[in-house]
């Protein structure tokens, strides 16, 4: 049920002035069509990412090594479902229906973060996801709390508040394995090797190849460019890896005092953009599995939705008869 949108045309200049004054845009305000489209695309992809993000981790709920770990992982996966819903709700305020977004995810038309198209073969992968993937997501999401679109910014504030435990939970898993037996430490290192580059790629194409960035920054949807966020991420993670005795798998990684306007930062090696685009285009290790799992869940849940509707109708009819 898409809410009726305000059709009044706003001039681009007028709109930009409002953005420049740091005023928030709310659902019924006039907005340029391109602003609405950009947000629908971005919030929709973000929502789909939260939802698909449940799959690689959900895989390990039944095999978590202790009850404590199982409880944490359950709570984290449940949070991700919630975060997906906050975001769908924000996208719906822009006039796109939930059903339409869902159909686009199930048909494979909609994109979601490529990171979830990688497999989770060991328990250490769950640690690496929390530490690196949620770490990268938080880097991305904190500036979005100040996004110019009110409902998106409010959803992000809730999400960031809830997500801070996710990264700590992942790092704790890695730390425990890194201090464990030789085999456990090796398992942690291998998971870091698997997840490092895909995590670095999570920030998207480099600024030179990111055509959407300019408008998004101008409209204050994005506050930092992909490369700026990527740099922050690398700078934050490298010392955390050192702290637990794991090695970031990049032989070109070194301290560069010229980075970050002379404050210093890590120089990192060449990113394999062929791999990035290959996975975006659908040819990653798990693309088919992820979409099939979503389709299966949707189809198998069909009777539950039908029953809920029938129940609602029955009660409504009874209520009307009693009146």
């Amino acid at each position: 049920m898409a809410r009726k949108q305000n059709e009044k045309i706003v001039s681009l200049e007028e709109f930009q002035e409002k953005i420049d004054r740091d005023e928030k845009i709310e659902p019924k305000d006039s907005m340029p069509e391109a602003y609405r489209k950009t947000l629908i695309r971005q919030i929709g992809q973000h929502a789909h990412s939260e939802v698909v993000g449940m799959l690689p981790e959900g895989n390990w709920i039944t095999r978590a090594p202790t009850l404590r770990r199982k409880l944490s992982l359950l709570a984290k996966v449940q949070d991700e479902a919630g975060h997906g819903l906050y975001l769908y709700c924000a996208a719906e305020t822009l006039g796109k229906s939930r059903m339409e977004m869902n159909q686009e995810l199930l048909s494979g038309k909609a994109k979601y973060s490529s990171i979830f198209n990688y497999p989770t073969p060991t328990w250490a992968d769950i640690g690496a996801i929390g530490w690196l993937v949620d770490g990268a997501a938080i880097m991305n999401q904190i500036p979005l709390c100040r996004c110019s679109y009110g409902p998106y910014a409010r959803a992000m504030i809730r999400i960031c508040k809830e997500e801070s435990f996710h990264q700590r939970q992942g790092y704790e898993i890695m730390l425990t394995l890194a201090r464990g037996t030789k085999a456990q430490k090796e398992m942690a290192q291998r998971a870091l090797n698997r997840w490092w580059w895909p995590s670095v790629m999570m920030f998207g194409p480099s600024d030179a190849d990111s055509p959407n960035t300019e408008n998004s920054v101008k409209w204050k949807i994005k506050r930092y460019t992909n490369d700026e966020l990527r740099q922050k991420f690398v700078d934050a993670i490298v010392p955390q890896a050192e702290k637990i005795g794991l090695t970031v798998p990049d032989k070109d990684l070194k301290w560069d005092k010229k980075r970050n306007n002379g404050q210093g930062g890590y120089a990192y090696g060449e990113i394999n953009w062929d791999e990035f685009w290959r996975v975006v285009r659908g040819d990653g290790p798990m693309n088919n599995e992820r979409i099939s799992a979503k389709q299966k869940a949707w189809n198998e849940g069909s009777w539950v939705r039908a029953a809920a509707h029938a129940h609602a109708l029955k009660k409504q009819t009874a209520l009307q008869a009693a009146e």
Partner: peptide, 20 residues
């Protein structure tokens, strides 16, 4: 705090509790 999809009000309350 946001919105929720549900076929009736009881299920709306339940989902709202789980999500928000």
């Amino acid at each position: 705090c946001g919105s929720i999809h549900a076929p009736d009000r009881e299920m709306a309350i339940l989902s709202a509790r789980n999500v928000y």
